Structures are given as structure tokens and as C-alpha cells.
Simulated assay, not measured.
Amino acid sequence: MQTASTNICEILCNKSISDISLHLNIPRSTFSGIITKWKQLGTTETQPRSGRPRKMTVHCAQKSPTVCRVKS
């Protein structure tokens, strides 16, 4: 009996980033970012950061503050 991880490895191991992103239906740029983060940090979890996140971006503030609010 094979486990799910064995089946995934048979499909995805030794494949290129482009092939894996096509198979998982994830954009290549997103997938390569995940791989880069894993290689640098050893995890894909969000890391702590200093300060409070902004309520809206500078770009949105210039356009229309009521339309572009970032939801908390």
C-alpha cells in the first residue's frame, strides 16, 4: 500500500519548477518564491516583523482611500 506522500513524490520529485507549478496549477513566480523562502529559512511560515502593518498602501492612498482599504 502506498501513502499519499509516496504518490506525490513519484509525480513531483526530480521535476523542474515549471513542471511542478503546471501540475499544481500554481503560478511559476509564486512557486519559485515558496522554494526560495524554504531554502533560505527552512520554513514557509510568515516570519515576525517589527511594527504594525499599514492600513493601506501608498498607491491606494493616492488613488481613492475609500476604495482601496486593506481589510484586517
Rank of each mutant, 00 (worst) to 15 (best):
A4H: 02
S5G: 00
S5D: 02
T6R: 09
N7K: 07
I8M: 09
I8R: 03
C9Y: 11
E10C: 13
E10N: 14
E10S: 14
L12Y: 06
L12V: 09
C13K: 04
C13W: 04
N14D: 08
K15G: 03
S16L: 05
S18N: 12
S18G: 13
I20K: 00
I20P: 00
S21C: 11
H23G: 07
H23V: 14
H23M: 14
H23R: 09
N25F: 06
N25G: 03
N25E: 12
I26S: 04
S29Y: 02
F31Y: 03
F31P: 01
S32T: 14
I34H: 02
T36F: 11
T36I: 11
T36N: 08
T36V: 10
K37W: 00
K37M: 07
K37I: 01
K39V: 10
K39A: 04
Q40K: 08
Q40N: 13
Q40Y: 10
Q40T: 13
T44I: 12
T44P: 00
E45T: 06
T46R: 08
Q47H: 02
P48A: 01
P48Q: 05
S50V: 07
S50N: 03
P53N: 04
R54L: 12
R54P: 07
M56Q: 13
H59W: 05
H59P: 01
C60F: 13
A61G: 06
Q62S: 09
K63A: 12
S64A: 15
P65L: 07
P65K: 07
T66Q: 12
T66I: 15
V67K: 01
C68S: 02
R69I: 15
R69H: 05
V70W: 08
K71M: 14
